[in-house]
Design a binder for these strands. Structure first.
Lengths: 340, 340
DNA sequence: ATGAAAGCGCTAACAG
DNA sequence: CTGTTAGCGCTTTCAT
């Protein structure tokens, strides 16, 4: 049975005014609760009655236009499917004022969003813009036209508010942990993308390992941030790793770590034991699906919460630090020392 | 360093018109590309120049109001963090026309969205509304005021377009599979929520098992759709299951299955072997993180894609079936027959 | 206490 | 080809 488009024209304030026998101005006052001592109780009652009668709801577009305020904040992220971003999203939603609507913008085809996409987002009149993990090229050329908050940039653009994760100290903890366990040759599995935050994770790790007498062998970079991509790449790379004496793998994201874990199972490599595995971004089920995975908790939800707070501050003009660095925490789930 | 709110007032069409020496109407035509043979090439050039000069972008709110068209579709779902919904979301985004913006609405505190939330969504003037897995109470009282598409309802409200998943035949396949493997006593692990689609999975499974001489022991219902919740509940329930001779567990969602898997590890129960595990909603990394899990692929992305198509049809007035049922597919990853 | 009127910024019809 | 004119539906002074 085909369905026909039943477009019921919506009641306007005029309809309500007519029914209640008053002006639209009064309707506006009453409906917005700004009628304290300005509208007679009887009229107020009649207005509400009329509202129910015709099922009136204010047209938010017209309202926004008349008030001259934007009421939508846009969240731009590379991939809503990635647990990291959906957690950030969750934090944003939780914190966002009810009067604001959240609009989501993600690349429909490409793997990452670019300047054109952000420009398109800013075409609307926005209450704010939250950019999650923007690529470096975008970051350099961004000209904000509304309050903007940058998330997980790796700390560039000091002229804009940015909220970052303390991946550096996470890397330190991680290096300490791995070296303490006896690891000397570590490999980094990452995604082939130009993101400062991603580079930061890797570079900090490298530096900290080096400082402790361990080394990072050449990276394994996959083109997609998926477990299967990582798994297949590891299957391919394993022989080389073995020759180089790799005993620990650090992944830029837990999703990749899941894939590495699967590869080790296929290869019959004991994890932990022969190999230690670590990742960034401890998702809620990391501990469940990969009990052997030592993981850096990136407090993604908190990132979303802070983003909204920063936006609020920017909008109200309240003072707000230009840069916030959120703590990260190493969740150790593998303390098997290796004998070398 | 605190950041000050740099609010740059945006240029309007008036500014451009003044600069280009024409009327705002002309600016509108040029900017919207509706000036074919209506504006002199020279003037057009001047308009564009002025546009760049003052960095003009049309105010989408005003534009929407003037055109009398809504340009935002709202997606309402219980939890953007759940892979199922983020996949649906991904499908929606991929399919949605560029001129439409997607707005996301999810409950900020409660576990599920209710009528009040949907009402609030419909307060804006929407191009469309997509409701994912609405609870039964909401469904019964929903009065649409714009094109609405229902996702994963379990097939109620035949007056509205709804797109469902063929969980019934998935349940049949699953029952067949389990019974074929030798299982006779199965338990269902679900979430304690009043959703037709969820009930459907369970009920269809029960019926199909019964038809094949197997039975469903009393359900294990957890209150949150998380792996940890399922794990802890299973740890608690295991003794009872063992007494009842349970040899297979079916989960309403793979996230729960992850938790069950973890519980079996802790209990030292072999999966597969002593126990078979199955779930609904085969997420991209299910095969990686839970290789022993037999899972029903729910084609969540496709659900999103179809939702947008349905919305388009409703808007353009094109004929569209009131009900679509998307196929599901059992992904068998455990074929270990049990001896009873 | 209430309504008339003037926009918000833009678009669509209609004159010129 | 181009500008003038009316609004879209709502909010907000400002008279009454």
């Amino acid at each position: 049975v085909p369905v026909s488009p039943t477009r019921v024209p919506r009641a306007t304030a005029r309809d309500v005014a007519r029914l209640a026998g008053c002006s639209t101005a009064t309707v506006s006052l009453v409906v917005n609760g700004k009628d304290a001592g300005r509208v007679a109780t009887d009229l107020r009652r009649r207005v509400w009655e009329a509202v129910r009668e015709v099922d009136y709801r204010v047209n938010s577009t017209a309202s926004a236009l008349a008030r001259g305020v934007a009421d939508t904040v846009v969240f731009v992220c590379p991939d809503p499917t990635n647990p990291f971003f959906s957690l950030v999203l969750d934090g944003i939603i939780e914190t966002l004022d009810e009067s604001l609507t959240l609009s989501l913008l993600v690349p429909s085809r490409s793997d990452d969003y670019d300047r054109a996409m952000v420009q398109r987002a800013m075409a609307g009149d926005l209450a704010g813009l939250i950019l999650a993990s923007p690529g470096r090229p975008l970051l350099e050329t961004l000209v904000p036209t509304c309050p903007v908050v940058l998330l997980d940039t790796g700390g560039e653009r000091t002229d804009l508010v940015s909220i970052n994760l303390d991946v550096a100290s996470a890397a330190t903890e991680l290096a300490e942990h791995l070296v303490g366990l006896g690891h000397r040759r570590v490999v980094y599995v990452g995604v082939d993308r130009d993101k400062a935050s991603l580079h930061l994770r890797r570079d900090a790790l490298e530096a900290q390992l080096a400082a402790r007498g361990a080394t990072l062998v050449p990276d394994l970079l996959v083109s997609k941030m998926t477990a299967t991509a990582a798994r297949d790449a590891v299957l391919e790379a394993w022989d080389g790793w073995e020759r180089q004496g790799v005993s620990a793998v650090v992944c830029g994201d837990d999703l990749l770590a899941f894939g590495v874990l699967e590869a080790t199972k296929r290869l019959g490599v004991a994890v932990p034991g022969r190999l230690s595995l670590a990742g960034f971004n401890d998702v809620p089920y990391s501990s469940i699906v990969a009990p052997a995975l030592t993981s850096v908790n990136l407090s993604a939800r908190e990132l979303g919460i802070r983003a909204v707070r920063a936006l609020n501050a920017l909008t109200t003009g309240a003072r707000h630090p230009a840069s916030i660095v959120l703590p990260t925490r190493l969740v150790v789930r593998d303390s098997t020392a290796i004998a070398r």
